[in-house]
Amino acid sequence: MAAPLLAVRELEAWYGESHVLHGVSFDVREGEVVTLLGRNGAGKTTTLKSIMGIVGKRKGSIAYEGQETIGASSDRIARLGIAFCPEERGIFSSLDVKENLMLPPLVRPGGLSVEQIFELFPNLKERLASQGTKLSGGEQQMLAIGRILRTGARLLLLDEPTEGLAPVIIQQIGRTIARLKQQGFTILLVEQNFRFASTVADRYYVMEHGKVIDAFANAELAANMDKLHDYLGV
């Protein structure tokens, strides 16, 4: 089997004095959609931020395309072809929609064109001149995802893209993720909503207390339902 696109080994991370990740290990293979599940505070977001290089201190190993990035700065990591869509979406209020969309620089060839992004999210096209934060929550999420598709990054880290959104928008985001997968993007998703995750994910890792405690494929989801309810406390 080919080496994974992203290999995380014994990853530890800290926010200031608080030790959040205690040895996280998992793989993401090229073209997969992998979802991190777990309760609030399990360390899912911190895992994404560690991969992106934006937590205070990291230890262990994060290899992307075989290249070690544990000591790299976040701008270097981004230029390797990893892009991050944060939970709070990170739309800039001092930029209009177009400026938000065009902000991330191209890091590699092969990103989506602006036209292709408008095809995925037609709403954005009509709001180009609006101030970024004047958009609805759903539109902001589309903008946050759309702007990282231009850059040519092949691994997308999406942190709770459906949080707080209406069901019809969640469906649209689900369809988008499916299309991105078809186009060859690799996606690492953090989700609380595993009904949504089950419509897009190939595999799951379950996190608790800053560790990966279980892993299974989408086909095994039904068989693991009881365990999952336990893990997630739902």
């Binding site: 290089g53 976040s74 701008d75 981004a78 990170g90 800039f92 209020s93 902000l103 991330p104 620089p105």
Partner: peptide
Amino acid sequence: AKLRAATENPTLVRAFGIN
């Protein structure tokens, strides 16, 4: 626009690959 964005949220702007 990069400057304004970095004034607002330097961490995220850096995570987009901007120095």
